[in-house]
């Protein structure tokens, strides 16, 4: 464990909590892409299958359980509890355009052709593109509430911090996980456009982020 990875996990947890609290307190999921949240729940489900078979540390197990629980709670709030506020008419990204290439690639490029390894690889590749429906929804509506942009900021920051963690681990313990690194870089690149808008618009106290 290093400070970059810890900061990354905290940033990830903060993002998930920001979104969950926003939906719960406003009793609405307007402007939130349910599809992205389902994809994130799928990412955690396929990545943490070793939750009961492999024990890494208390921290690792606790965080996996927390991420699974919070992501499913978010999906539940969107599609069940506050489903009347869900903007399905704006959440129209074709997730099959993400799932098909990700599934194909995880069968082609993996460390071992075993169910657990292929599902882990699937979760890594899927996480890189899971935010697409949400970013697409924002471009479609042309705006995002500031809370939603803070959620996206911490979500994007988490994998950027993981990249720093991978650099650190490469130099200190010669560890590198190429699939995670390549996918993590792609994932962070997808956030760059948002980061630009976030720093130039939201942090200038403009409240909502309206797209040009």
């Amino acid at each position: 464990m290093n400070v970059f990875r810890l900061a990354g996990d905290v940033s990830h947890l903060v993002a998930i909590i920001i979104l969950l609290l926003k939906i719960w307190r406003s009793k609405s999921c307007a402007g939130i892409s349910g599809k992205s949240q389902v994809l994130f729940a799928l990412v955690f489900t396929t990545r943490y299958l070793d939750l009961f078979t492999v024990f890494i540390s208390v921290y690792n197990t606790v965080m996996k359980v927390v991420f699974l629980a919070l992501s499913y709670a978010t999906v539940y709030l969107i599609y069940m509890r506050f489903r009347n506020s869900y903007n399905s008419e704006n959440d129209t990204f074709r997730v099959e355009f993400l799932l098909v290439p990700v599934i194909g690639l995880s069968f082609l490029e993996n460390y071992a052709f075993t169910p657990l390894e292929i599902l882990w690889t699937f979760s890594i590749f899927l996480e890189a593109v899971a935010i697409m429906p949400q970013l697409f929804m924002i471009t479609k509506t042309g705006e995002a509430e500031s809370i939603t942009t803070h959620y996206l900021f911490f979500l994007g920051l988490y994998r950027a911090l993981y990249i720093a963690n991978w650099v650190w681990r490469y130099h200190t313990e010669s560890f590198y996980d190429l699939i995670a690194i390549v996918s993590g870089v792609v994932q962070t690149i997808f956030f760059c456009d948002f980061f630009y808008l976030y720093f130039t618009r939201v942090l200038r106290g403009r409240g909502k982020m309206t797209l040009p």
């Binding site: 070793d50 890494i56 690792n60 963690n165 560890f175 190429l178």
Partner: peptide
């Protein structure tokens, strides 16, 4: 060094 993909990361 060989790629060791030990799954200790979240």
């Amino acid at each position: 060094q060989e790629e060791n993909n030990m799954k200790d990361e979240l």
